[in-house]
Design a protein around this nucleic acid. Structure first.
Lengths: 244, 244
DNA sequence: CGTTGTGTTGATATTAATCAACAAGTGTGG
DNA sequence: CCACACTTGTTGATTAATATCAACACAACG
């Protein structure tokens, strides 16, 4: 759909990384059309299979990534194996924020992930030539920071029900990237209960019980572990905000 | 000391916001010397008294801020009053990240805070002219994001003792901005127990008890609520990492 | 000299973690 | 095609960590 859209907009583009250009975050959108050739030369589209990681916490940060399809989990580990999922990356998500030239988190494919990889090295020169690109990156980093702050509120101050409700609301909102909430209330959750638990700072058991509770309250219907229907959207939003 | 340093480097500078230029984050460092006049024209140094807020969550984001002295708490509130402190800003800290042109968090002075305020409006033109400035901002946003991710691990996966130890280690490290850990292990905590509790996702009682515990373990000595000595730095670091 | 705000400590309650059993789905090899 | 193991998710019983409720100490301040 996205590639169809850009194809429609300009059918004779130099076909650089058509597969890489997700609508909002993509670096391509910030670069003049004929300069995309540079990207074409260095961008490498990749497919990452379920469970495979393509970015490791602490590893030398040589590349940026732009997710174009699928879902990745981003997490950090403690030495004893405790895990905190700091976010899920879907189509359009830009990855590669680094600290001291090393990735700050590990990224692993939840399902089959398609992404576009390009070297950090060239990006600085490109940023100098196209400040719009840097603006885009700054925007992306700011958005992520805001999301991180919301997650902190969730982790520090919300109870199990509020956490799960918040997660579902956020996941639903992030569905069609940037677009309004889908008319249909059907949600597909590609990640496991363990992923959700590690994202929300809970255990799998509590996640499972909390799903059951929201179901008993008539707010959700669970078709299968990874397919659910939001029956009462307002009630879910209220639960997320802690108003119930 | 810092202003003395820059004064030494160029004693005849146009005296723009000498008070505003903290070493690492400051936007000034990214701008050619004689262009600082622009900053001089629009930068407003402010003093914010204890308890006063200078940035409100949800308010229109018209300014950036650069803390030069003192400590500010950054927090978000839930509708029922629950509070999550997402960070403390000290000298050098850059503030003003926005979401949809509104501030994402509230900033309040913990003690007397001195800061430099400048309009967002002009900054975009300035960024176009000086990409180094934008690089600086991007760097700042990235650093904050990494810090946010560490806090998520703390909030989602650490116990009370690990949380408090992590906080103290981080606070000590942030002491002399960018510099190595202070030789002295004396820490000054300008914020209240409630601030610490809301930062670590705990209650004041648990914070107090956990301080007492670290004291009983011979890791800390508490002179007064806001003055303590780290007696066994390695033990504190071990506690922070969850290795005990 | 009382009043108020902040911090500490004690007793009890509550949420969510842990431990445990089991159900359902998936893939493998006989 | 059917045991079989293995993974994932669910539910139940119990425990443990932290929140809550309550009392009090102490300093700052009018």
């Amino acid at each position: 759909m996205l590639s169809a859209q850009s194809a429609r907009a300009s059918p004779v583009q130099p076909a650089p990384c058509r597969s890489c250009c997700a609508p909002q975050f993509s670096i391509c959108a910030a670069i003049p059309h004929d300069e995309l050739v540079w990207i074409a030369a260095v961008a490498v589209p990749c497919d990452v299979k379920e469970g495979q990681s393509f970015m490791q916490e602490g590893e030398r940060a040589d590349h940026f990534f732009n997710v174009t399809e699928g879902t990745a989990r981003l997490f950090k580990l403690l030495s004893d194996g405790r895990r905190q999922v700091v976010g899920f990356a879907r189509a359009g998500h830009f990855l590669g924020i680094a600290h001291n030239d090393c990735y700050a988190v590990t990224a692993e494919a939840v399902d089959t992930v398609r992404l576009c990889r390009f070297p950090r090295a060239g990006i600085h020169g490109l940023m100098r030539r196209f400040p719009a690109l840097q603006t885009r990156l700054l925007q992306s980093a700011s958005d992520e920071l805001v999301a991180a702050q919301e997650l902190m509120v969730l982790l520090g101050r919300k109870n199990a029900r509020e956490r799960l409700a918040s997660f579902l609301v956020g996941w639903a909102a992030g569905g069609p990237p940037g677009g309004p909430l889908a008319a249909s209330e059907v949600l597909h959750l590609p990640m496991t209960r363990a992923d959700i638990a590690d994202y929300l700072g809970m255990t799998v058991e509590t996640v499972s019980r909390t799903f059951a509770r929201l179901k008993n309250e008539g707010i959700l219907a669970l078709h299968s572990p990874d397919e659910l229907v939001v029956l009462r959207r307002e009630a879910l939003a209220a639960a997320a905000a802690g108003e119930a």
